[in-house]
């Protein structure tokens, strides 16, 4: 059986919030080592890959691997029933038909428990090859979120150009054009504000801003986000989690 306790429900609430625009139904895979998920959106443009290692939980026990087929919208509704600061416990039997979600509010002495009906989710598992990326840029999540939001007011797509000078986001839409240039910088007092650019060779690719804005829902999970780009490979947008990560892959736009 599975029994997994999180000190703060906010972590799972934010994770589910950040994937629900991309994925409707998915399998949460629970194993001895932790909880993971891999799912593609219906149009096969974006893929989300989540790992929450067992050490990211206050308590974690999973005797044998369990696959939890979940409707993400339904899980979102249940998670909204708990407070951000509540202790959250997930429980499931070995061949479960429901996932038990328990919230404990120690201040109010309030315990609430909900059972989410599980479903069979027929899902292809994709092999994600190890990729040598041409460029990796780590920046504050708030900055990336702002850029994606601002440029989406002008256009549906953004061109991302990385060279040794820094990273440029630019777009050209019906009402006009915009661009933002970020240069590498290090902030010793506030390292989360640093911008780090690692580059093997310059790279320029275009991406759909609607998806980038979906990914930015994960901004509350981490202070920094890393973008990895290569050739015509999918963009990797990674947010680090306590003992894990949430990674989004986005297929680039092709040709012009």
């Amino acid at each position: 059986m599975l029994e997994a306790k999180l000190e703060q429900a906010a972590l799972l609430k934010r994770i589910v919030d950040s994937i629900r625009d991309i994925v409707q139904d998915c399998n949460f895979e629970c194993s001895e080592s932790g909880l993971s998920l891999q799912a593609m959106d219906n149009s096969h443009i974006a893929l989300v890959s989540l790992l929450l290692g067992k050490d990211g939980f206050t308590d974690y026990r999973c005797d044998r691997s369990i696959s939890l087929g979940v409707n993400v919208g339904a899980l979102t509704k249940i998670l909204k029933c708990g407070g951000n600061d509540d202790v959250l416990t997930l429980r499931a039997e070995d061949k479960p038909s429901v996932l038990s979600v328990m919230f404990e509010d120690s201040i109010q002495d309030r315990i609430s428990e909900y059972n989410l009906k599980l479903m069979d989710v027929d899902q292809e598992h994709m092999g994600i090859p190890d990729t040598e990326y041409s460029a990796s840029v780590t920046m504050p999540t708030a900055e990336f979120q702002r850029i994606a939001r601002d440029l989406h007011t002008l256009s549906d797509s953004v061109e991302i150009d990385v060279n040794k000078e820094g990273i440029t986001f630019s777009c050209d839409g019906d009402i006009g054009a915009g661009s933002i240039v970020l240069k590498p910088s290090s902030n010793i007092d506030r390292p989360e504000q640093s911008i780090n650019v690692e580059i093997v060779e310059p790279v320029t690719l275009s991406f759909n801003l609607k998806y980038l804005n979906h990914f930015c829902k994960a901004s509350g999970l981490s202070n920094q986000v890393t973008l990895r780009l290569s050739g015509e490979a999918p963009l990797l947008v990674e947010y680090k989690l306590p003992n894990g990560f949430i990674r989004f892959f986005l297929a680039p736009k092709i040709g012009d």
Binding site: M126, G127, A233, P234, F249, A251, K253
Partner: peptide, 14 residues
């Protein structure tokens, strides 16, 4: 205009 690529070509189904 650029067309939106798909992931299928990059990731193989296991």
């Amino acid at each position: 205009t650029a067309t939106q690529g798909r992931l299928d070509g990059f990731f193989k189904v296991l």
